[in-house]
């Protein structure tokens, strides 16, 4: 970025905080935002971190130190097991208390290539609880964990089945008021029509990118 670099004199003349600045003498210069900056590629940690993108997708990134990997490979060697590949094991732990690695409802594996440092996981089901481990899959289906993630919840997509007895409506009224909330034209329509409209609205939302696609950010370019 080609910015006009300012002279030290001009900086001094800015007047802002004159008193404080004056104690640094005429050599004061601020750091330039456009300078070359190189960030660390890692922080010497063994970790995998999970973040929810939306009801169907979870993002994970990880950092595994060479020492950690070497010690796991050493362990495999000691047991006479050949390592097969590095995988992510995605555990569905919805409703599980005290997840210990063996009590998940179900799990599935994703093979990752060694250059990857993060992954978008299609977990496929809203309203569930997830934990993701990165590890080495060895012979005899043995899984050696390098790191295990924090626990995340994908949000429900659709209306809750749990009703509040103090504030109860008929099914028809729920759809009518939900339809109105989404900006659907509900006046004069039958409850069946409204229910269909609402369902179609949610389906379109999934496929097209949202009732909120008209929403924010059209102005900030």
């Amino acid at each position: 970025m080609d910015k006009t670099q300012k002279s030290i004199k001009a900086v001094m003349e800015e007047g802002q905080r004159e008193v404080e600045l004056s104690k640094f003498g005429p050599f004061l210069e601020y750091e330039h935002i456009s300078r070359a900056i190189r960030l660390p590629t890692g922080y010497n940690k063994d970790r995998i971190v999970a973040m929810v993108r939306d009801p169907w997708w979870v993002f994970v990134y990880w950092e595994i130190t060479p020492q950690r990997e070497a010690s796991v490979l050493e362990e495999l060697k000691r047991r006479g097991l050949r390592p097969l590949r590095t995988i992510l094991r995605v555990y569905d732990i919805t409703g599980v208390r005290g997840f210990d690695g063996n009590n998940a409802n179900s799990s599935f594996d994703i093979t990752i290539n060694n250059a990857a440092r993060n992954w978008y996981i299609d977990v496929g089901s809203p309203g569930r609880t997830w934990c993701i481990a990165i590890g080495i899959l060895a012979e005899k289906d043995e899984f050696y964990i390098l790191a295990r993630s924090n626990i995340v919840n994908t949000p429900r997509f659709g209306m809750s089945d749990i009703l509040d007895e103090t504030w109860m409506l008929s099914e028809e009224e729920y759809y009518r008021i939900f339809g109105a909330s989404c900006g659907l034209d509900v006046v004069g329509k039958s409850s069946f029509e409204i229910k269909e409209l609402f369902k179609r609205h949610l389906m379109e939302w999934i496929s097209s990118g949202g009732i909120t696609s008209f929403a924010s950010h059209i102005l900030r370019r």
């Binding site: 993108r53 939302w205 909120t212 950010h217």
Partner: peptide
């Protein structure tokens, strides 16, 4: 429910 007003209604704009 977990949500935002961004494109698609969740976190995808920022992630």
């Amino acid at each position: 429910s977990f949500s935002s007003w961004g494109w698609k209604g969740y976190s995808e704009v920022w992630l």
